[in-house]
């Protein structure tokens, strides 16, 4: 394993928004095929990390480096990152009335294909794939015709994010609380969706508050993110530990000491 090339390497990353530093010395290394879970209290910077990696406007990197599939990620445009195989499933997906889901999916699939030197997908082939993906995430087909996320319920939006992931086949999937707001059945559905996509050349970062999800998706690593950096890493058992202990041990600032002790 150790000599496999990393898919994503984040080194000493400091980043924030509007002069407010949120990511404070973040390090993470992900190899192809690995599943990493990131947990941590509200406001720790989990979503911010996803925004920084995706290249969202307004999120400034002060220092540090991010290498994705051998390329300097921080120098790439948002769409280039996506076309290189980075996918962020949003905690709060955006509603875009007037742009139909299917039209959006076609543009998106075509963009990724073009980046890989492939021809645009035919409408009928896309429809076929989209229907299959809808079925897999249990989203009625009528949602393909509606505006992107327009009027979707919280859970439906999450399913729609997963559906996009299924169609785009990214190298790295960052799922930001895709399990929040889902009923128990849907939770298993997310897990199935992710498990069906697990492969040697696809990695996952799963941001979640609930150990529950990790019962279904066995992570290779669990990290605790607090105040902008990873304060503890472990295997799947760490999630269980957190479930019983909560984050109280993070208090009083002296994080490292508490963990070690």
């Amino acid at each position: 394993m150790s000599n496999t090339k990393s898919l994503l390497t984040i080194k000493d990353l400091y980043a924030g928004i509007e002069e407010k530093q949120i990511i404070k010395g973040f390090n993470l290394d992900i190899k192809p095929g690995e599943v990493h879970a990131i947990m941590g209290p509200n406001g720790a910077g989990k979503s911010t990390m996803g925004y920084v990696l995706s290249g969202r406007d307004g999120y400034e990197v002060e220092s540090g480096s991010v290498t994705f599939n051998g390329q300097n990620l921080l120098e790439m445009e948002i769409e280039e990152r996506a076309n290189a195989g980075l996918f962020l499933a949003f905690q709060y997906p955006v509603e875009i009335p007037g742009v139909s889901n299917l039209e959006f999916l076609k543009a998106s699939v075509d963009a990724v294909r073009a980046a890989n030197g492939e021809e645009a997908i035919s409408s009928s082939e896309l429809l076929k794939q989209a229907k299959a993906a809808c079925k897999q995430v249990d989203l009625p087909l009528a949602f393909l015709k509606r505006g992107v996320n327009e009027g979707f319920s919280g859970g439906e939006k999450k399913r729609n994010e997963l559906m996009q992931m299924l169609l785009l086949k990214p190298k790295l999937c960052i799922l930001d609380e895709t399990d929040s707001g889902l009923d128990i059945d849907a939770l298993q559905l997310v897990a199935k969706g992710v498990n069906s996509q697990r492969s040697e050349d696809r990695s996952f970062i799963i941001v979640t508050h609930y150990q529950r999800l990790l019962d279904y998706i066995k992570p290779d690593f669990v990290h605790v993110l607090a105040d902008g950096k990873i304060v503890k890493s472990g295997d799947a058992s760490l999630a269980l530990e957190l479930e019983s202990q909560g984050y109280a041990w993070l208090e009083n600032g002296n994080v490292e000491a508490k963990i070690e002790g």
């Binding site: 995706s54 290249g55 969202r56 406007d57 445009e77 948002i78 769409e79 990152r81 996506a82 076309n83 996918f87 962020l88 949003f90 997906p93 955006v94 875009i96 742009v99 959006f104 543009a107 998106s108 963009a111 990724v112 980046a115 992107v148 996009q164 785009l168």
Partner: peptide, 8 residues
């Protein structure tokens, strides 16, 4: 931004 994160 959302559309761009999907490669468009």
């Amino acid at each position: 931004y959302y559309l761009q994160t999907r490669g468009i």
